[in-house]
């Protein structure tokens, strides 16, 4: 598990990563509860955006490896490309799971009204996996980590706006409202709404199922590019 261990080490050595992983979630916990919209405290809605940022930051390591030729060097070593990807993705997953637990636990301790904290945790974890897979696929299109990050920032804002995280989807024109379903953020927003008001468990399973399907699709796209 060398690749896994060193992926964690490299992530925690980066100060910007530490800010994304610790300071921002803490700040999100302390954001106030809204009067009408969103249904959950502001911080928990914005956490979805933060997860996307974390995803692109973490998977940026893989672009860096490709850029530096480390992936090429590893192709000559007794380790498969699958092992390399799997161990890195495992390290990223461990980090985002810990962050989601921290976020929910923080909310419970701070006495936020989270309605179903455990289900919200599951939703955030599943969305985190989608965010990592999406970032992996996104990064596979780029040779340069910085360019990838900059363009993805715009994509995040668009996805957050059109997906219903930053504002109610009902405020969008009909066409955009229909288009919103293609964004994973839409399903996150739907999931958060279900946590507050949902009754039928099948709906919650469907939301998580769609997010997991997205995860699978993005993982496949992101894994195709090997050495670059």
């Amino acid at each position: 598990m060398t690749i896994f261990t060193f992926a964690l080490k490299r992530i925690f050595k980066d100060k910007t990563n530490l800010i994304f992983l610790t300071l921002f979630p803490v700040a999100a916990i302390f954001l106030p509860e809204p009067e009408y919209w969103p249904l959950l405290p502001y911080g928990y809605h914005y956490f979805g955006v933060l997860i996307l940022f974390v995803g692109i930051r973490l998977t940026g390591l893989l672009v860096e490896d490709r850029q530096k030729g480390v992936v090429k060097r590893l192709a000559a070593a007794p380790v498969t490309h699958f092992q390399y990807l799997f161990q890195n993705l495992l390290a990223f997953s461990v980090i985002v799971i810990a962050q989601c637990i921290f976020m929910i636990a923080g909310g419970v301790i701070y006495d936020h009204e989270l309605h179903e904290p455990l289900l919200l945790l599951i939703l955030f974890i599943v969305f985190s996996f989608t965010a990592i897979a999406l970032s992996l696929a996104w990064n596979s299109l780029y040779r340069n980590k910085e360019t990838s990050f900059l363009v993805f920032m715009c994509v995040i804002i668009i996805m957050a706006l059109l997906g219903g995280i930053m504002m109610p989807i009902e405020m969008l024109p009909d066409v955009l409202e229909q288009l919103a379903v293609i964004f994973p953020t839409y399903w996150l927003a739907e999931g958060m709404e279900w946590v507050v008001m949902g009754e039928d468990t099948a709906d919650f399973l469907l939301i998580n199922g769609v997010l997991l399907l997205y995860t699978l699709l993005f993982l496949i796209i992101g894994s195709i590019r090997r050495m670059g």
């Binding site: 060193f6 080490k9 530096k68 030729g69």
Partner: peptide
Amino acid sequence: VTQELTVFEDL
């Protein structure tokens, strides 16, 4: 030993 410097700058 690769032609490029394939080492991790952050380690």
